[in-house]
Design a protein around this nucleic acid. Structure first.
Lengths: 339, 339
DNA sequence: TTGTACGCGTTATCAT
DNA sequence: ATGATAACGCGTACAA
């Protein structure tokens, strides 16, 4: 079971290894006939060049790495697809690397940077503020997408693209207030969240303050450590809240998935949406459109975000601009669940 | 910005490269003090070994590759997590590689096999029958999960784990028939699908035949080429069907996502579920539980499938068994949408 | 316990 | 247009 190498191919074809290499890599300086013959032999023997050896030797690769934290995030799929399309348009290739919650994204990024010859990197989701400084260790341009980094707006060693979570959350709660709601519950991340959870909670607090609604801590429902933005969790949080008989007329879930679970919980205790309790979500994923009742939510402009991400990345790669931090407006989608 | 290598570390520490290597790889034959000092220098200089060089040199890696086709599949997230847990238990490590719809999974598998020193591979989803033969080109054991391969049950060069899509689909449609339904529509994959779409359609046909219900082609709604199992698509297919005024009392969508879209379409034309039209899905994802009405569906035993997958893979790796093809029973979850 | 030297499979450089 | 050969960065056999 000896693995076949470029030398074997060269020997079989009766040529030197460099000629085989040239054939594979579409080098100009090669006779069309010899190239064709070499390619035939390669196919015949199912020879596949070893990528590790290639990466080791190559100086240039035109590769962008995409680090994705959180397999479960419902709009990463489309995001990844759009980003890849854009990268392909530029004749670059993309390598996606999943990052487990327990893994440190920057460490992985550093490995990847050495392993491949990267031109740039994109971090998708779940980036925590503590790691911001360590980003400096990366030598290639980095763009953060949909990642929380409240206090780092002036950072010049990476770019970022996202909606302004505070502002959008504010937009939603402000809307609920103008609809006459004053007792607005919120289903949010863990108490010590440093990511989007905290930002969206801030927007909630600011909107209430503007409308002079005092904060009721009982209406702020935090997830436990280790729990995620799942429907199951939304259901659980909502049931707990409903059981406490605290009075409220609407609930803002900081993700659509949480909102779906909340809706079901409300339904299960015999209350109606929106007559008894209005429900609002965040993200604008498909289910918000197709759920019954359809969910009022903040729709994130996924495709625009993805496109702007690659645009900025390539600009920085080509040294045309400095790193920048770009915010997109979300869109308040008013649907059945609040009216 | 010259990249730092093992030689630099060795020079800085005043030792040989092999000592540095030993320190990094927890080799036994090394003085604790020198090791500690080396590790300090490594941290100080943020040295990260080059994986390409390592892979090239290493003979053994204890790595399992997981190829995932279809980022959007709703239960891949949990599946990946469970598989990784199992792999970690065995002291192996896992590398996840996403495969775009346009890419050929076997080609990618062959590259990966050379690049890393893999012990085995797992293919998650979207594997098409045409590629089955090419699997022979892989030298390491392969397990297919949730992948359609109707006619290859006797294949001995790979294993597979999944539910029996024909049988489970049959189970669902049989149930609908026993509920008194005779005009049962189906929302399915493209007309020429060779994957789960075809299998689930077969189960539908067989169940109808058993109940002596003649097949009504107008009630079989195929997706167009390039469309996916999305809610949007379920909505579209259902609307088209409803517009045709063909009479039917229930609809079986071959995925829960399609079913959700279908439900919304039914709701939008003013019909009730299940009184006017009963709806059934397939997969058993969260939304089927939390949708209103909750969806009758076939629940796939995700965790069992994932665990069995790694179990079989390690058995084959250790040469303890031949390749096998294992089917799990799905569970018919009868919920509000059909009663 | 430590250092030297070789080779992993490929691409780049330099001759030819 | 082609071939020989030197790296790429690391692990490891072997010598010390």
């Amino acid at each position: 079971m000896e693995t076949i190498t470029i030398k074997d191919i060269a020997r079989i074809c009766g040529v030197g290894v460099s000629t085989v290499s040239r054939a594979m890599n579409d080098h100009p300086d090669i006779n069309a006939e010899t190239k064709q013959k070499i390619m035939e032999v390669i196919r015949e023997y199912n020879y596949v060049p070893n990528n590790s050896a290639r990466n080791l030797k190559r100086t240039d690769s035109n590769t962008i790495a995409l680090l994705v934290k959180g397999v479960d995030n419902p709009f990463f799929g489309r995001m990844i697809r759009v980003i890849e399309e854009e990268i392909e348009k530029k004749q670059y290739s993309m390598v996606v690397r999943h990052v487990e919650p327990s893994e440190d994204e920057v460490s992985i990024a550093m490995e990847l940077e050495k392993e491949r010859r990267l031109k740039g990197m994109i971090f998708l989701g779940g980036f925590y503020t503590e790691s911001a400084d360590s980003l400096k260790l990366l030598k290639v341009p980095v763009v953060l997408v949909t990642s929380a980094k409240p206090q780092y707006e002036d950072d010049e060693f990476y770019s970022s693209v996202s909606v302004d979570d505070v502002k959008e959350s504010y937009r939603m709660v402000d809307y609920l207030c103008t609809q006459g709601h004053r007792d607005i519950a919120i289903l949010t991340a863990t108490k010590y969240d440093e990511s989007v959870g905290r930002l969206r909670l801030m927007g909630y607090e600011q909107a209430l303050e503007k409308h002079q609604v005092p904060l009721n801590p009982k209406l702020i429902r935090y997830m436990e450590d280790g729990e995620d933005y799942s429907m199951e969790n939304g259901y659980k949080l909502m049931r707990e809240l409903l059981d406490e008989k605290e009075s409220f007329t609407s609930v803002f879930a900081i993700s659509d998935s949480l909102a779906v679970g909340a809706c079901r919980a409300i339904h299960d205790v015999g209350l109606r949406i929106p007559e008894d309790i209005a429900v609002a979500g965040f993200d604008g994923i498909d289910i918000a459109t197709y759920y019954t009742p359809s969910l009022t939510t903040i729709k994130q402009p996924i495709e625009e975000i993805a496109k702007e991400t690659t645009r900025i990345l390539f600009q920085v790669i080509r040294k045309k601009t400095k790193h920048t931090h770009k915010y997109f407006d979300g869109e308040l989608m008013i649907r059945e669940s609040t009216q």
